[in-house]
């Protein structure tokens, strides 16, 4: 049985189409990522799957249960970590955990094995009010609370947003370990670089899924050659390349600009050389998820 099956989900709020024809499945034991910026519709989709919102059209099942008809059973079986930090700030770490364990008809001890890894990292602060924890710690506690009843499916809505790179890395390592325990996970993130940490991802933008595949396949799908270009004055370089008629796309990526062309690279080189850029470097490079995302966004914008 597939843990999550989503079929042709539509949802609108007034005039805004929040979700358009969303379909995907999450397989047994899979870590599935929803990658997209704020406002892409990720949270709405999470709320539909966790039975908090009703879709206008389409159906979905979680762990074989229908999200509308069987909402009570689903609520007993899933773990959900909403986008905003949602623990009781005035309750201590321990109190929060015990509270959530009890309302799910279980105890911390019963499923301690599952959360031990994570809980041990925050255990030194167990008497501290949750509101006084650092961002990374809060996320760990929230994850513990979502896991404490040993859910059959785990929903994590932007667990790493606003968290520093170190805590983000640790968080993803924890997710990998949970995956090994066989829990299917649906996770969303606006950080493109986190896509490669998922088994499969859906790239979502403006309420539409642009592509679903493994990160490797998405990158391999990017057929155009990409050139990494840099010079001493990056702003002037960017301006000149944007003005160049052979340029297909040109965006900053780290210390380089990623450039795709309609013409050959030699023509572009000549154009830049004529503009006297100092320390000019042009080399071939490979695409990343973000390149693919930008490309898909452009295609989406063109079709609208």
């Amino acid at each position: 049985m597939q843990p999550i099956v989503v079929q042709n989900i539509h949802k609108r709020f007034g005039d805004v189409k929040a979700l358009r024809n969303i379909s995907f499945t999450v397989e047994e034991g899979e870590l599935f990522g929803l990658i997209g910026p704020d406002g892409a519709g990720k949270s709405t989709l999470f709320r539909i799957l966790t039975t908090l919102l009703l879709a206008d059209e389409g159906t979905a099942t979680v762990n074989g249960l229908h999200v509308v008809k069987d909402y009570r059973s689903i609520r007993r079986q899933v773990g959900y970590m909403p986008g905003r930090f949602s623990l009781y700030q005035d309750l201590s770490v321990e109190e929060n955990l015990h509270f959530f364990a009890t309302i799910f008809h279980t105890s911390v001890e019963e499923n301690y094995e599952l959360i031990r890894d994570i809980y041990e990292q925050i255990a030194p602060f167990k008497k501290r009010p949750a509101g006084k924890l650092s961002g990374g710690m809060k996320q760990k506690l929230a994850l513990c609370c979502a896991l404490v009843h040993k859910p059959a499916v785990l929903f994590l809505d932007e667990p790493t947003t606003g968290v520093d790179p170190v805590s983000r890395k640790e968080f993803w390592e924890m997710l990998q370990r949970l995956k090994q325990k066989g829990i299917p996970i649906l996770v969303s993130t606006p950080y493109m670089d986190e896509a490669v940490l998922c088994d499969r991802v859906a790239l979502i933008q403006k309420g539409e899924i642009m592509q679903i595949n493994t990160p490797a396949a998405i990158i391999a799908d990017f057929k155009k050659p990409i050139w990494a270009v840099r010079a001493r004055n990056m702003f002037h370089l960017l301006r000149d390349l944007r003005a160049y008629e052979g340029t297909d796309s040109c965006y900053a990526f780290g210390e380089y600009l990623h450039l795709t062309l309609h013409t050959g690279i030699e023509d572009a080189k000549a154009w830049l050389t004529a503009r006297h850029h100092e320390d000019l470097v042009i080399q071939s490079t490979t695409a990343g998820i973000e390149d693919a995302f930008i490309r898909l966004m452009q295609e989406q914008n063109e079709t609208v």
């Binding site: 910026p37 704020d38 965006y251």
Partner: peptide
């Protein structure tokens, strides 16, 4: 730029 799409 938190949460903004890659092009923006």
């Amino acid at each position: 730029t938190g949460g903004v799409d890659p092009i923006t």
